[in-house]
Design a protein around this nucleic acid. Structure first.
Length: 370
DNA sequence: CTATGCGGGCAGT
DNA sequence: ACTGCCCGCATAG
């Protein structure tokens, strides 16, 4: 396989040297190259018109994964699996978290789930959520093609994403599990508890930074410094970061009387952000894993307005290009999972996660302190 | 529940 | 003929 593109961040393929010969094919060719010398490391964020040849042993490739939210598209060709990008779910108010990050949630792949998701509200300002469609391929969504041929899995993408990166699948799953766990316990003052837990785990005292957030860019809606308030005092006053204007909106936000009554809501809002961190034991990480380096992020996007306490968690750094350091995770995502849970067969992955301390780091990364 | 795949069917180019 | 896309069905985790 080819090397490593440690850049999980941007263009994934700067990684390679190869290309020439390998790139000369098209997913629609009757015959694809079989003399491949090296296969590529799985690329988590393929963008632009790129092509990759993965080993048929690569679990991520086998599952046709992508950190972009791609849905299956019927191309009436059983030999070539086609998927199109769903874009990213953003806050209709275009709010920003205290630290200037934007909300970029992962659109649910399932149509039904996506509709439900859009009825929920922004975890940050409680405003409406909006699906930002991908139009990077001639006005249409970027499309990815997968074709299994012998010992290889050929991948080709068409179009360049014209929107921010959504949460990765793992992040979204983590968020969900956290929420679930959260609702299950729903301690009186989750926030405090979590803070403590976090502290013990990470050795650091979580701060606002650790909180909710999603990603990128500088402010717009100024959040009162209160974010912290939200955090620690949580349930009492305040609005974490709400963008003035817009109230929650109709359907979604609403269900709770209280919510309606108080738009800014202590209720929803607070809850949404009140739990900056999750309970360790419940950490998704344990199972799903996360890619600490990943750019996007998002607190929950789903259940937020419901009254439960959404786990707002923070993710890594903002968006795009993340300089990746090391090879810890080379270009792909899912490695973490490996760490914690099933091992997916990739040898590489295995390699990566051999160290326990690494796990700890992951945890920290989950709740980044940056 | 949600992610994924598959394939029918419809519409626009 | 292609392509985008909606829809239902089925399977898996």
């Amino acid at each position: 396989m080819l090397k490593a593109a440690d850049d999980v961040g941007m263009k994934q393929e700067d990684s390679a040297p190869q290309r020439a010969e390998i790139t000369s094919w098209d997913i629609n060719d009757i015959k694809l190259p079989q003399d491949v010398r090296q296969t590529d490391w799985f690329q988590e964020w393929p963008d632009s018109y790129v092509k990759h040849i993965y080993s048929s042993e690569d679990k991520n490739a086998q599952r046709h994964h992508s950190s972009w939210a791609m849905r299956n598209t019927n191309n009436h060709n059983s030999r070539i699996l086609k998927k199109s990008c769903l874009g990213v779910v953003v806050c209709g108010n275009d709010c920003s978290t205290l630290d200037g990050r934007k909300i970029y949630l992962r659109p649910a792949i399932c149509d039904k789930a996506r509709q439900k998701q859009q009825r929920k509200c922004c975890p940050n300002c409680n405003g409406p959520l909006r699906l930002l469609s991908c139009r990077g391929h001639g006005g249409y969504p970027v499309t990815n093609f997968w074709r299994h041929e012998g010992q290889f899995i050929f991948f080709q993408s068409k179009g360049a994403h014209d929107h921010p990166r959504p949460e990765t699948k793992l992040e979204a799953e983590a968020r969900r599990s956290i929420q679930k766990a959260h609702t299950a316990f729903s301690p009186p003052s989750p926030t405090l508890i979590r803070l403590q837990e976090v502290k013990s785990l990470t050795g650091e005292v979580p701060t606002q930074k650790v909180l909710p957030l999603l990603l990128s860019q500088p402010d717009q809606c100024m959040l009162p410094a209160s974010f912290g308030g939200c955090l620690s005092t949580s349930s009492l006053q305040q609005t974490p970061g709400h963008c003035m204007e817009q109230t929650p909106y109709p359907g979604a936000a609403g269900e709770h009387v209280e919510g309606r009554v108080h738009p800014a809501h202590v209720g929803s809002c607070t809850q949404a952000w009140s739990s900056p961190l999750h309970i360790p034991g419940v950490l998704p990480v344990t199972k799903g894993g996360y890619n600490p380096l990943r750019p996007s992020a998002g607190p929950l996007g789903e259940e937020s307005c419901e009254g439960k306490a959404p786990p707002a968690y923070s993710l890594p750094p903002p968006s795009y290009p993340l300089p990746q350091h090391g090879s810890g995770l080379r270009g792909s995502h899912q490695q973490l999972p490996v760490l914690f849970k099933e091992s997916h067969g990739d040898v590489e992955e295995g390699r990566r996660c051999t160290n326990p301390s690494y796990c700890n780091n992951l945890f920290c990364n989950l709740y980044p302190l940056r």
